[in-house]
Simulated scan of single mutants.
Amino acid sequence: MNDLTDKVAIVTGASRGIGRAVALLLAMQGARVIAVARSAEELEELAHKTNGLAIPADVADEADVQNVVEETLRHYGQIDILVCNAGVGSFNLLENNAADEWDRMFDVNVKGTFLFCKFIVPHLKAQKSGHIVGITSDVARRTFEHGTIYGASKFAQDALLGSLRKEVRPHGIKVSTIYPGLVDTYFNEAKPGSADTEKTHLKPADVAQAVRYILEAPPHVVIDELMLHPLTQEW
């Protein structure tokens, strides 16, 4: 298995939910974690627990993303892992969605993934190694009522990562995609830990363990896609 000790890992959407769970678990495995989100206060508390860096940033802002990459390289001199977790969603009938909802979801879910990969891939190519993990959704592989915009953004994110996987594999870089079902976070209408979600949703820690599993796979093992099933909490 791959050792994550001293690996430099950028995790987006790290202030709460899945991103926070991923950041904490990677730090426990010895990785140097750079936590990225818009909430500076929550990030500072997380950075204290992970003994890593906290960099407030908007994942859809090109200057912010470039700054995260440059600050990481200045501090650690390398980047080994990128976990694209930041995501937003809202669910409505197509005709009841405002155009700015389309922009918001595509900015965070798709553009954010694009920008981080754009600025990190050249460094991974130069070192001929690295691993990008995209946390998308099971709705990147299916459609559902009221999910027109969110589903479209996740299909687009999935296509981006799938194409990138083919581009960078000859350079020794892995790209993996995780498709969680419902996860017990603030992303959903119910509050985390409520009776409504306890038996039907994955926990953020379940997704974090899937990220760890992928990252620790031996170098010759390529796991392109991993689907998580919320009702059984198995993967």
Score class of each variant (00 low, 15 high):
Val83His: 02
Glu62Asn: 09
Asp64Trp: 08
Ile79Ser: 03
Trp102Tyr: 11
Glu101Tyr: 03
Leu73Asn: 04
Ile79Tyr: 06
Asp61Pro: 05
Ala47Trp: 09
Ser90Gly: 11
Glu71Trp: 07
Asp58Cys: 08
Leu93Trp: 04
Glu70Phe: 10
Arg104Glu: 11
Val69Phe: 13
Phe106Gly: 01
Asn92Glu: 09
Asp80Gly: 04
Glu101Val: 01
Val65Met: 11
Asp80Leu: 07
Asn97Gln: 15
Phe91Ile: 04
His75Thr: 14
Ala86Glu: 01
Leu53Gly: 10
Asn85Phe: 09
Ala60Gln: 04
Met105Val: 01
Glu70Lys: 14
Asn67Phe: 15
Met105Gly: 03
Val65Ser: 09
Glu62Gly: 01
Pro56Ser: 05
Ala99Gln: 05
Asp61Lys: 08
Thr50Gly: 08
Glu45Phe: 06
Leu46Asp: 09
Ile81Arg: 01
Cys84Leu: 14
Ala98Asn: 12
Ala60Trp: 02
Asp61Cys: 12
Leu73Ile: 10
Tyr76His: 13
Asn67Trp: 13
Glu101Ala: 03
Lys49Gly: 02
Ala98Thr: 12
Asn67Leu: 13
Asn51Phe: 10
Ala57Asp: 04
Arg104Val: 06
Glu71Pro: 01
Gly89Arg: 04
Glu62Gln: 12
Asn92Asp: 13
Leu94Lys: 00
Val68His: 08
Glu70Val: 06
Thr50Val: 13
Asn97Lys: 10
Val68Arg: 04
Val68Phe: 11
Ala60Cys: 07
Cys84Met: 07
Asp61Asn: 15
Leu73Ala: 04
Asn85Gln: 07
Ser90His: 11
Leu73Tyr: 07
Glu71Met: 12
Ala98His: 14
Arg104Ala: 10
Asn92Gly: 09
Glu70Tyr: 08
Val88Gln: 03
Leu53Glu: 07
Glu95Gly: 00
Val69Asp: 06
Asn96Leu: 02
Leu82Phe: 02
Pro56Gly: 07
Gln78Asp: 13
Leu82Gln: 00
Glu45Met: 09
Ile79Thr: 03
Arg74Leu: 14
Arg104Trp: 14
Asn85Val: 03
Asn92Pro: 00
Leu82Ala: 01
Glu95Tyr: 10
Leu94Tyr: 08
Leu93Lys: 12
Asn67Ser: 14
Val59Asp: 00
Ala47Asp: 08
Gly89His: 09
Asp80Pro: 04
Glu101Met: 02
Thr50Asn: 08
Asn51Trp: 10
Cys84Gln: 12
